[in-house]
Simulated scan of single mutants.
Amino acid sequence: MSHATMNSTPTSQNGMTLEPTPELLEELAEASARLETATPEEIIAWGAERFGSGLTMATAFGPEGCLILSILSRVAPETYVFNLDTGYQFQATLDLRDRIAEKYGLEVEMLRPELSVPEYEAAHDGPLYVSNPNQCCFDRKIKVLHRGLAGRTAWMSGIRRDQSADRAQAAIVGWDKKFNLVKISPLANSTKQEVWGRIVKEEVPYNPMHDQGYPSIGCWPCTRAVIDGETDERAGRWSGTGKTECGLHSIDQQEGSGI
């Protein structure tokens, strides 16, 4: 997969900078309503046609992301895709990147924070995920995401509305106030069963930890397997802290909030 050169100013397919004008917001609302009953393939194809090289995707290699990558390989293989490599990812997640590349020919770029894990922990007198997980997410995910989105006008996510209260409000297409570009969620109206049905049927590579009680997988210090009786598939993330989101998809738009 070829990666388009990233510019400092977000531009649309025709080189125009995108701003959340009333006209653009109306266009996005109309597109979102029209695509509400579309297939993920149709939504992704629309995004690739509308935004061209301005379209990108950040993936954590969750089941939804893997399904989208399998579709991208057929519909828009030139799309720039990246992973927020915090330095705390499970080895199984890193290995999955290689399996995806081998099957689909998609090279997912690993974007890393400026400081390595040892440097970061030394600067904060120990692991910050213990004392301040919000700040850890902000430094090692949100800041890196801003870098990955530089020069882009639209990004795709693998969120589903049935995953959490924050995500229940997700539009198929909308303006992302936090990152100042268009956000496209091809699987927003898909269910967990529908996603996994396609993964099994189409033999999409996925993280084997999902078969070991980990429905949602993030960084290893802040992820555990769910236990019997837990119905929230994100119950194993930041367990016991009251934290449910890293900040990439939270609805609170204040800088750094909700992470």
Rank of each mutant, 00 (worst) to 15 (best):
M16H: 03
P127Q: 04
D95E: 07
P221D: 00
D252L: 04
E26L: 06
G247E: 09
I43D: 15
W238N: 01
E107R: 10
E194K: 12
L145D: 10
L96Q: 06
T17W: 00
M209D: 01
E49N: 07
E27A: 03
N7A: 09
A150W: 09
N180T: 12
E26G: 05
A45C: 13
A48R: 02
V173N: 08
P118E: 03
V226W: 06
D211V: 10
D139W: 11
Q135C: 00
E42F: 14
D139P: 09
A170D: 07
T241V: 08
F179T: 04
V204E: 03
R167M: 04
Q13R: 15
T231V: 10
R97T: 07
R237E: 04
T5S: 14
A170R: 05
K243M: 02
H249L: 01
D125P: 00
E121Y: 03
C246W: 14
V195E: 05
S12P: 04
R198G: 14
Y120D: 06
A123M: 01
V81H: 07
H249W: 09
P40G: 10
E41G: 12
K141A: 10
A58G: 15
D252G: 05
A48D: 07
Q135W: 02
G148I: 09
I259M: 15
T9A: 09
T153Y: 06
G15L: 05
R140K: 13
Y214V: 02
P186W: 11
T93Q: 04
T241S: 12
V182D: 02
S250I: 10
N180R: 15
A235M: 04
E19D: 12
I100H: 10
E109I: 10
P133T: 02
V130G: 06
V182G: 01
I71F: 13
D211K: 14
F90A: 00
E102Y: 07
W196I: 01
A170I: 06
V195Q: 07
G126W: 09
I259K: 15
I251N: 14
G213R: 02
S257Y: 01
Q254D: 14
P63F: 15
F138K: 05
F51N: 08
G229L: 03
E42Y: 15
A235W: 00
V117F: 01
P118T: 02
F138N: 09
T37F: 08
A188D: 14
L84W: 08
G218N: 11
S190N: 13
D211S: 15
L96C: 06
A58Y: 14
C136F: 07
G87W: 03
E194S: 14
R237A: 04
I184A: 03
E42N: 14
G151F: 05
V117A: 02
L128Y: 00
T11H: 05
A122T: 00
I159A: 07
F90H: 00
R237W: 00
E194N: 12
N83C: 14
Y129W: 10
I43F: 13
Q212H: 12
N14L: 02
P77Y: 01
D95M: 03
A122G: 00
Q89C: 12
A38D: 12
K177P: 12
I68E: 09
E233L: 13
D125I: 02
A165N: 06
S12N: 08
E23D: 03
M156L: 13
R167E: 03
K141W: 10
A92V: 06
L149S: 05
Y129F: 14
D252P: 03
W220D: 08
